[in-house]
Design a protein around this nucleic acid. Sequence first.
DNA 1: TCCCTTATTGCATAAATATGCAAAACAACA
DNA 2: TGTTGTTTTGCATATTTATGCAATAAGGGA
Lengths: 346, 346
Amino acid sequence: MKDDKPTSFDIAFRAGVSQSTVSRALRNSPLVNLETRLKVQQIARELNYKVDKNASSLRSQQTKTIALLLCEDHGTGNSLINPFFLSMLGSITRATASRGFDLLISFQQFSEDWHADYEDANRADGIIFLGYGDYETFVKKLTYLTEVGAHFITWGPVLEGQPGVSIGCDNFNSAYSAAQHLLSLGRKNIAFLGDVSEHSPEFSDRYRGFCKALQEAGIEVNPKLQVAAETSEEEGYKATLSLLQRRLPFDAIFGASDLIAIGAMKALEEAGMHIPKDVAVMGFDDIPMASYTYPPLSTVQQDTLLAGELLVENLLLLVDGERPESMLLPAKLIVRGSCGANPVKK
Amino acid sequence: MKDDKPTSFDIAFRAGVSQSTVSRALRNSPLVNLETRLKVQQIARELNYKVDKNASSLRSQQTKTIALLLCEDHGTGNSLINPFFLSMLGSITRATASRGFDLLISFQQFSEDWHADYEDANRADGIIFLGYGDYETFVKKLTYLTEVGAHFITWGPVLEGQPGVSIGCDNFNSAYSAAQHLLSLGRKNIAFLGDVSEHSPEFSDRYRGFCKALQEAGIEVNPKLQVAAETSEEEGYKATLSLLQRRLPFDAIFGASDLIAIGAMKALEEAGMHIPKDVAVMGFDDIPMASYTYPPLSTVQQDTLLAGELLVENLLLLVDGERPESMLLPAKLIVRGSCGANPVKK
DNA sequence: TCCCTTATTGCATAAATATGCAAAACAACA
DNA sequence: TGTTGTTTTGCATATTTATGCAATAAGGGA
């Protein structure tokens, strides 16, 4: 159908220079005379020439590619992807592209040896991890990755002594503010839905911030008002049912994530309770659907745009041999209808 | 920190065989003795050896990689990604991984020369296009891609004479059924929100199916009840406002997409109209948030899982030199609360 | 024992680029 | 004109793997 793809030798021949000069000219090296450079580039354009990525990567030993590994929490196989991660995905894609890098993505389970598959195989210069499943397993993995000298960055918890560089949300302070907000609206018996074991350090941080707000308001934290739940609507739904069975009075629910909060809203609605009159609801993440629930979900918004930028930027620093610091990003309280601060139109 | 990455020569040396044998053994070629094969594989495992992807691709001229190009409709830059495409993304990722292929993704605008960037540069064996922006531009692009012999498949409209292989939803029949459903519930003045120009062939198909249902029910199609809108909540919102201004009676809205329908619901609510009592609403796509609106949105569900599988499968056929047929996938009506068929709990 | 198959292995090379080093071209200056 | 310095170019090679072809080993029949 069409002739073979032109190589740098073809360009060289056409331009009457050597292949080396072509290679340099196309990368705009100041080593080659401006005139020659333009001529070569012109010919390359005419022939529709593109540098062969494989040859280039092989020779230069850098791929200009980043791998994004999305670890589904406790991998349920074909379940929905956490919408929050999808927002991150969007911003990471843009940040990557704007730096001239390609993005390789994978949704496999964390059990695989990703470092080997991507970095050792010379497929990617570095890896971004999104999500982590069980924290202990995750840390083991990070330790291993650090030992073998992998270049990676993670989004998620930023704990003392955690190997590698991480960027995450300031869960503690954000949850603290959100809880304060509920308290300021007169809610006194606030339930917390989310796993707070060592397996979920982010949720634990949110819970600690939540508790601090209660304590400062002179309210004793009732552990019976905390119900474990992972990030999914079903878990939030079930946790709420279990909460209802405890027959303890509560006038607000703080979901450790929006999905949990949304599941809770479904359960409350089915139980005939009115949101926010009977029970105020607060989420965390601000996933797109948060503003479409009824009533719209008040929540804590993470700046995914900034997060994506920082992840990519710092990963590339890491690849360049620098040693960026882990950091926590502030989040913003978004007040909608579910917490009772705004009038709910019917 | 650690010694250099082992190459196939290192394995060969350790195993006392030649590099060729290592290469064959690792790919499980029957040309090499089973015993030798196992020994080589064992040593490779011990040394943590991974085949260099670039060298391998360079030599074999196939990348085992697929590029997924997501074209945002009329590229609004930093806007949200269409949630429907994100569902597709999930299934495409899985389908790709299960075949041992990598997935390269990009969200750039359609104006770039993607074929050149990906296939010519030997980065990917084939391309999947998701979304297309303006249809005319899209077709020009497809024509070009066909001419240069690119391997690609598109998700979207499947029109007569359209270059290349496409997989899409049976928009006509699905919209026909959905409209029939609204009619069966006694709605007579149904508005249609969505661009039905030649720029949006999918919406046009949906509109044609919609019209057919009306006509069969003996209802004349009123063009004033059709308002243009692209896929976004804002457009749906604005289209509804514009519809309201026309002061025509209507008792149902059929949104050409869920986002449009959701925007419409917001506008109706603000106008003090009750859904579904005053106005029934029907969407199209079944994006995740459709079941979380109030009332939950009735819609047409596209089988994204199947779609992803088929896209990948047929693209690989194409890469192998076969010539798969374009096809339309049936969709399923999902009846929730917004169309008035189910009782809406308050 | 010799010859012919069949099963295994190794040799040599090609895939396309990037880059260290040497060479050439050129100007400038004495 | 010779020398020195700068700019520009080309040579040669390295990157790592896959594979056509030749070579060797092993096995079997006469």
